[in-house]
């Protein structure tokens, strides 16, 4: 989503993105011309009239699980976004019985919250081994 019109989105897809990816953009390219949506998400910059690089992970219940907002000059890291989605999906699939510590990727050590874990994380998880 950006303040560009859906018509400009089409030209960007046709003239550049489709050539970069070898196919059309597979998701909706939404237009927020007046910045109305960007404002309620806290990413519309009134001074420059554009939207910051805001990224929101929204779960199947419509709950925002994560957000990241960068100023325009620096781009994002898609791998990290995918890692976070995989971690939230894992937590959701286990009904939060299992949680994902720092640096978790699929297959890595999970933690099971509970009284036995208190003050024992150091036994279960090592920043050198499990990160």
């Amino acid at each position: 989503m950006s303040v560009d019109s859906q018509f400009v989105h089409k030209v960007w897809n046709d003239q550049e993105l489709s050539k970069m990816a070898g196919k059309d953009v597979p998701f909706h390219m939404a237009s927020d011309g007046p910045g109305n949506v960007g404002r309620i998400y806290g990413v519309y910059d009134e001074n420059s009239g554009v939207e910051l690089r805001g990224r929101f992970i929204i779960d199947p219940d419509g709950v925002i699980q994560a957000m990241e907002v960068l100023t325009p000059p620096v781009g994002r890291q898609l791998d990290e976004t995918i890692r976070q989605i995989q971690a939230f999906q894992h937590v959701r699939a286990t009904g939060a019985a299992e949680v994902c510590p720092a640096g978790w990727t699929p297959g890595k050590k999970i933690l099971k919250p509970g009284p036995n874990l208190v003050a024992n994380v150091w036994k279960e998880w090592s920043p050198l081994k499990d990160h």
Binding site: M1, S5, Q6, F7, H9, K10, N13, D24, V25, P26, F27, H28, M29, A30, S31, D32, N36, V37, R39, I40, Y41, G42, F56, I58, D61, G62, V63, I64, Q65, A66, M67
Partner: peptide
Amino acid sequence: TVVTAKVGSKAPDFTAPAYYQ
């Protein structure tokens, strides 16, 4: 124009014109 998006809360709903395939 209050910011209503909050991590851990429901996302503010919206409609928007879009280009799609």
